[in-house]
Design a protein around this nucleic acid. Structure first.
Lengths: 104, 104
DNA sequence: CAGACATATAGAAAAATGTCAATATGTTCT
DNA sequence: AGAACATATTGACATTTTTCTATATGTCTG
């Protein structure tokens, strides 16, 4: 399996939960700390911590500590690249398997 | 949780498996029947059948029968809309929570 | 340094997912 | 109708994911 499918699928999986997708949306205009995000959901603090780790490990979000707080923000470059990749996946391509099938 | 997060997350989840993402890629330039897709993977026929159902139920793929075969193709309209939605999720927005936070 | 606060980790239980073998269904051809 | 073929469904099992409680770690303040 080509690496691009694996990498892209990992990012999609991280966002394939409504709650985490909403977190990405919340972060779209800037940084938020964990406690600010937590306020918006009916989940416990460890659950959020786990969700944020999933987003960080997928390369969707970066984190930094400032005092007692951890601030999260989107890795926009990574997200934009994934978005482009996804667009290419949908689009017709000259090297698609269905062409080779017609030729073969 | 807003419906748009639920619907989008469902589509992302369906594509959050490298194999299914590759199937979407394979379908990007046209229809393929189940047996043609199956040839490309080391999985059993019931496994593929299950994967295709996931894609159909997420609204990513449509299916039609032609004789003994089931042909699958992408629901491009649905995919394009999801792609746009995803783009909006990433982008800064005036109604983002972080703005209301600054005001409040 | 002790207490308060923010976040992370560990461990456990429930739910969802991925995959298979076996079998059923639907279709075509003879 | 019966055989052959393509796909779907069922039932089972292993793995992964989700979420919690309890506890640990890191940071600031007095």
């Amino acid at each position: 399996m080509e690496q691009v499918y694996i990498d892209t699928a990992k990012m999609l999986k991280a966002m394939s939960d409504p709650k985490r997708l909403r977190i990405v949306d919340m972060l779209s205009c800037g940084e938020l700390c964990a406690c600010e995000i937590l306020e918006e959901f009916h989940i416990t603090q460890p659950t959020l911590s786990h969700d944020m780790r999933v987003l960080v490990e997928a390369g969707i979000v970066t984190d930094r500590r400032e005092g007692k707080n951890i601030y999260y923000k989107l890795d926009k470059e990574s997200l934009n690249q994934m978005h482009k990749t996804l667009g290419r996946v949908f689009k017709d391509k000259p090297d698609c398997i269905c062409h080779s099938r017609k030729n073969g």
